[in-house]
Each structure stands twice: as C-alpha cells, then as structure tokens.
Nucleic acid binder design. Structure first.
Length: 229
DNA sequence: GCGACAG
DNA sequence: ATCTTGTCGC
C-alpha cells in the first residue's frame, strides 16, 4: 500500500519538531468512516544492542477480528527515544511494513498518541498523514493532559483535557477494573467514533485486538531474527 | 530551577 | 521499549 513520501528520515531532534509543526497543520481531526471492513494495528519491538527496530502490521476483518494479513519489517534504529518525538524512532519501520501490505485497511490503530501530544502531532497523526487513512491513537499511558479517573466498568470514559481545558482525547476503560487506555484522534476520524471502534475491537484484553496482534508479531519477529542472525 | 515525560 | 519469577487476587 502507498505510504507517502516520508519513508526514511534522518533528522535532528530540532528538525523533527519543525516537521511536527507542519503535521499539526495538515491533520484532519474529524470525519466519519463508514463501517470498516478491514482494520489494522501496528506496533514495534526494539533490539537496543543490535540497534534494530522490528515493526509489525496486522490486518483484521471487522467486526469478526479474524486476521487477514500480516507484514513485518526491520529497520536500523536511527533516532533516540525522546518523549514527544516517538514518530522519528518508529515511523520509518512501521511505514516499511505498511508498504508490504496487499490489503487496504479502512482504519488503523496505532500504539501511541495522536492529538494528545505536545504539538498535536503524535505518532498516530504522523502515520495517518503518511498513509492518508483514518487513524486512531491508543496509548497505554499519558503523555500530556489532565483527567479524572473514569468509572470502573468497561466502556466508561473521561475526557483528557489540555492545559486550556480543550478535549484532546478520551481516557477509556476497556476492561472492568483494569487501567484505562488513552484514545486520541490520529487523522480523518472523530474522537467519538475512535472510542467506539476501540471498544468494538476489544477481545477481552486491555489493548484492542489489532494492536495486540501487532505487538505479538513484532515481538516474535525480533526473537526469530535474534535466533538466526 | 524542579518535575513530567507515548514507546 | 526492555531487563525478569514468583505471586497476590478474582
């Protein structure tokens, strides 16, 4: 599938910030996606010593959530982990994996934040723009913003608010009495639908199935590469 | 100046 | 993210 022009960047942290300011202006934080037929999840695993990033993308049928296709890729780790600049560490590998896909997912789940980011340009926005496809950011912890603990039952939500009290995401309980996840818009989708889809893609685990499958696959790709090279 | 800080 | 076994709780 087409992954746009930003496939392999070698930039400095300062240039990265500049690029995110551009991304912020291009992202479309709204839109309604017709009921998806295919959903995808993407995640990455790291081998710090070998300095490699393993990315995995899994496409699932919706609403069955049966795996339809998978793709993995390895990429040299060329950027340090800096809170707010995660895209420059993971995007190159993730996009390479997306480029191997034969199926076109209707919506993509990213393991990280979208608009709930210092410059409103998190990994989910970044990938969404490169793919020019509806993208949902689903992170396991907070990056910015304040919130009240959502109710204890699955489906309970609480708004994630920026300093000026703007809604930048939704803190969602995906399982009863389990730590919530942080859902935010990546590109071309509204927050309400992003939350509904996240719940609809749940399989009884805290993380939505697309992302969970991608996590497992990325982890496996790393392990298999380490055991033969 | 002192914390906070996706993965 | 990753390093790591058992263990407390439903």
């Amino acid at each position: 599938m087409n992954v746009g022009q930003f496939h392999s960047w070698t930039v400095t942290p300062r240039e990265a910030v500049r690029i995110q300011e551009q991304i912020r202006a291009l992202v479309i934080p709204r839109g309604r996606t017709p009921r998806p037929k295919l959903v995808a999840g993407a995640d990455a695993a790291f081998d710090l010593h070998a300095r490699q990033v393993y990315a995995a993308v899994v496409v699932l049928a919706y609403p069955d959530l049966e795996v339809v296709e998978t793709a993995v890729s390895r990429h040299r780790l060329s950027f340090p982990y800096v809170p707010g600049l995660l895209s420059f560490r993971e995007a190159p590998a993730l996009l390479r994996a997306f480029s191997k896909l034969r199926h076109e997912p209707d919506v993509v789940f990213i393991d990280g934040h979208g608009l709930s980011h210092p410059r409103a340009a998190g990994l989910a926005c970044h990938i969404g723009l490169c793919l020019e496809k509806p993208t949902i950011g689903c992170a396991k912890s907070r990056l910015i913003g304040g919130y009240r603990e959502p109710g204890p039952k699955r489906g309970a939500t609480s708004p994630l608010l920026s300093r000026d009290k703007k809604v930048i995401g939704s803190v969602l309980r995906t399982c009863d009495n389990v730590r919530p996840v942080f859902v935010s818009v990546g590109h071309r989708i509204g927050l309400a639908q992003a939350v509904r889809l996240t719940l609809a893609c749940g399989k009884g685990y805290r993380v939505p199935e697309p992302t969970r499958q991608a996590d497992i696959l990325a982890e496996r790709a790393k392990r298999e590469a380490a055991g033969s090279g």
